[in-house]
Nucleic acid binder design. Structure first.
Lengths: 215, 215, 215, 215
DNA sequence: AATGAATGAGAGTTCATTCAT
DNA sequence: GATGAATGAACTCTCATTCAT
């Protein structure tokens, strides 16, 4: 309950909280969300007790890390649209700045545990909504520019890149990077306006990614 | 070592073994490789003891499931090349028959645990090699046909589709299927011969996916 | 129930039974009475099922091995008294033929499990009684000969040698044997009416107890 | 590694640790080193978790108990030499104060498991060395005094008494004590330069070994 | 009757979470 | 408030014993 963002924390408590989130992001990214809580506490330089005072349980921590991360991603997305000359370029830049995204997506979509935690969390949903809204704009703008093919929509782009952003297990760091770059380029090529083959179904809108409608 | 094909099993033992692998495939696919052994045993309709008699530990089970799975995939790949009129169509069909593939890729590339188990297992390496060899042929043939762009190689195709084959966490079954179909179509579009933009780096060959060279 | 010695067994069953007891003696002696039943079965060249058909449970097996062993010991004791010229020599010879004895004593007196099994077993008690009766005769005869001190009785001798017959954990085979010989000589000297006989080998220094030198 | 004396423990942790060692000593002495960890925890009044926090596994616990015990034994040995007027008396007193010794010897020499744990443990080796050094002095002094026979050395004494110190399984507490006393007296007589001292108690007859009378 | 497969209770160990210091 | 100790439930694995072949 103390983890409530409303209540402003004392300076040292604040610092602890941040260290924990930073450590958890680091470790979650590297090892997934199943690491012992004690390890996270150690990496953050605090005792487990402190960790649990800040975050009542593992789920709360995952939620906090994801929230923190979505914020970064959102900021990045906004910076991209604000600073790039064309929507297409904004889209590309945004997608290339994947470091932060990666974790979000991991947490949001790979781990079963994490996914269920996040789904029930209002703040997360909000961020998710904000992010999709942002993406909506860019996607439609890129289509208006004639850079992005017309038979797709935001949902397609989101899902396609969600795939791309998974942690790939590769023989080496180099191979991983090269792989990631080329895959992204191939995908972008698939998205580009010079049509290609008709796609099955109908464009996936950002609404299609909503979790709630039924169930 | 357990699944030693030398010693033929008694009929009932054989049946149990198959049920266990089937149950494990099912559950691994759905929940990842960390499920309690007891749950797998229950799903297979046997006691834990039986499971452990057949597979000395979790790693052995993972290995066996992966081996079994790779075999299916390989068969499928061969059937595709044998039966489809063009290499491109063989490639597409092979990639569409993803149900089996999905688990292989999951086991081989998503889970840290699983990956390390599989890496040390010769049989797995063999299957992996055989599969890449098969893919090699199709990819090059598709390029010769003029259907597949020339600036890529087997490694690119493998990695791109490895991404695609991840379990996607989606709001609904329908959404998941639609998503998968469209993503695949977009990717195929990226792969098609009418080029598009130049790709970064150099084509990834199947050698690039080898785990062993150094380290 | 089949293990009842009354019922004569078929030849092959008999053979199985003997192999099992032989294997169990071997293994119990080497590793104590906690070895897996399966290991015993394997060593005996039969399936566990067969072992269990012969001996309803582990305790029954321990009892059978001990019974078998006591019989050997008793035979040995009788041979000693029958064949040696003096009672003292019979005593010494008997005590030196410790190989069989060792296991009896182990089973009877070292292991808690074994002890309780054996205590409740009438046949064992009988053998035990017979053995003590035999020892009684020798001890008293040796005292009459003037070779054995008068202020002791059969119980003293039995207990003293029970101690001696424990498995000693020693740095090496050689050290173990030398140790056993010298300890026995010292004990015999303690028992003698006129002590002071020369000891075998050379004095064991504290270096001789070092575990590390070689191996 | 666990019982690292560097890091001072918190008061409660210290108390728990001591209780665990005390309980383990008690139980190991009575039942050998194979008792369930849970039983030890219960006897110590803590949860298993606590036991495992203190001692990463059974071996670590055995090591700690043995270390603790050797310390006591060593102290006793030193007190004996310091306080007794002659080396022979020091030797006798030391050997009579067997309660502590017994467990050491049990752990060090009877159990296969325990023996291998202890062998690899430097601290144990040190204690063992120190103890033998102490014994060396007493033995040689007793020989110089003319009390101890000259054709033996420290190793003989150590091994002989190692035998004596085994847990004897006896019909009753009384019988056990009488047995121990008389065996020790006989052994001491074997060691004496001028043997032939009167023994304590009365001769143990074969009846004294009967298990049944009471209980 | 022999075999070895199946069972399940129980032991060792880990780790999320609570609580005393 | 912070710390790290204690707890116990949950999980992996083993093995005595039973049972189908």
């Amino acid at each position: 309950m103390t983890a409530d963002p409303e209540t402003p924390l004392r300076a040292d408590a604040r610092r602890n909280r941040d260290q924990i989130i930073a450590a958890a992001r680091e470790i979650f990214t590297r090892q997934g969300p199943d690491v012992p809580m004690e390890e996270i506490a150690r990496a953050a330089g605090v005792g487990v007790g402190t960790l649990y005072r800040r975050f009542p349980d593992r789920d709360a921590l995952i939620g906090a890390v994801a929230r923190d991360n979505y914020t970064r991603v959102l900021n990045e997305a906004r910076a991209s649209t604000a600073e790039e000359p064309t929507a297409w370029e904004a889209l590309v830049r945004f997608l290339r700045q994947t470091q932060e995204l990666k974790l979000s997506v991991q947490l949001a979509m790979v781990s079963q545990v994490a996914a269920s935690v996040l789904t029930g969390d209002g703040t997360i949903d909000e961020f998710r909504g904000a992010l999709l809204a942002e993406l909506d704009v860019v996607v439609h703008a890129a289509q208006a520019e004639g850079a992005l093919r017309k038979d797709i929509d935001t949902g397609d782009v989101a899902m396609l890149f969600a795939l791309l952003l998974r942690q790939v297990i590769s023989p080496s760091e180099d191979a991983a990077r090269l792989t990631a770059d080329r895959c992204m380029a191939l995908m972008l090529d698939g998205l580009r306006a010079q049509p290609g083959t008709p796609l099955p179904g109908r464009p996936l809108t950002s609404r299609d990614l909503d979790w709630h409608p039924e169930h």
